[in-house]
Design a protein around this nucleic acid. Structure first.
Length: 194
DNA sequence: GAGAAGATCTCCT
DNA sequence: GGAGATCTTCTCA
């Protein structure tokens, strides 16, 4: 496995959100590697996307979305939850991909311990859950996903029988008409998460 | 300087 | 299935 290069992130945010599915998010806690396969992501752009933090232009919090691509944007929401994004688009243009769901790959024991006593299928299937499971916290905001030593994304692939579906984004009140949420489905049967 | 809203999760009924 | 928890950031006066 090799890390995604800077050029992967330096593209259209919606395209990056779709292509990041199947890639491997890796967290090095200093003691062991925790990783998971990305199965759900959402695209957030800048001006023109009322659901994005960058909608009103750069602020102290959102300015990282306007910076160079390939960096982590971690922020705190609802009092208890850190949410992880990967900054996209070229420098000066706002964009980020919200990582919403993972399938555990490495460090399952530690992830289970971090998450408490929940079913395996519920370990990392939400943006607040995966950050807790992989110990992704606010100090990782601004981490370089291409050259950093604590958090990065490795190349991965879509397997035969899997398909990418697009749906409206979750948990927002504005901009829901855009189908910028992408989910990797590995079941061909009826009845998805919707 | 104060108030309100927010890209969520968990517990309780 | 529904409502509370809980804190950072932004906006307005």
């Amino acid at each position: 496995m090799s890390r995604l290069s800077r050029s992967f992130y330096q593209k259209d945010t919606v395209a990056a959100a779709r292509e990041i599915l199947g890639k491997i998010l890796v967290r090095d806690t200093g003691k062991e590697l925790l990783s998971g396969r990305i199965v759900e992501a959402e695209a957030y752009t800048g001006p023109g996307d009322p659901a994005s933090h960058a909608y009103r232009g750069p602020t102290p919090r959102s300015r990282i979305m306007f910076g160079p691509p390939g960096y982590a944007y971690v922020y705190f929401c609802y009092g208890n939850h850190s949410l992880l994004n990967a900054v996209t688009e070229e420098e000066g243009r706002a964009g980020a991909v919200l990582i919403r769901g993972l399938d555990p790959v490495e460090g399952l024991g530690t992830i289970r311990k971090n998450r408490g006593n929940v079913e395996d299928k519920n370990l990392l299937n939400g943006p607040g859950k995966l950050t807790r499971g992989l110990e992704i916290t606010l100090p990782l905001n601004g981490e370089d996903l291409v050259r950093g030593s604590e958090l990065w994304i490795e190349d991965g692939q879509i397997f035969p029988g899997e398909r990418i579906i697009s749906t409206p984004r979750i948990g927002i009140k504005k901009g829901t008409e855009r189908l910028w949420r992408f989910v990797l489905e590995n079941k061909s049967g009826p009845g998805g998460p919707l």
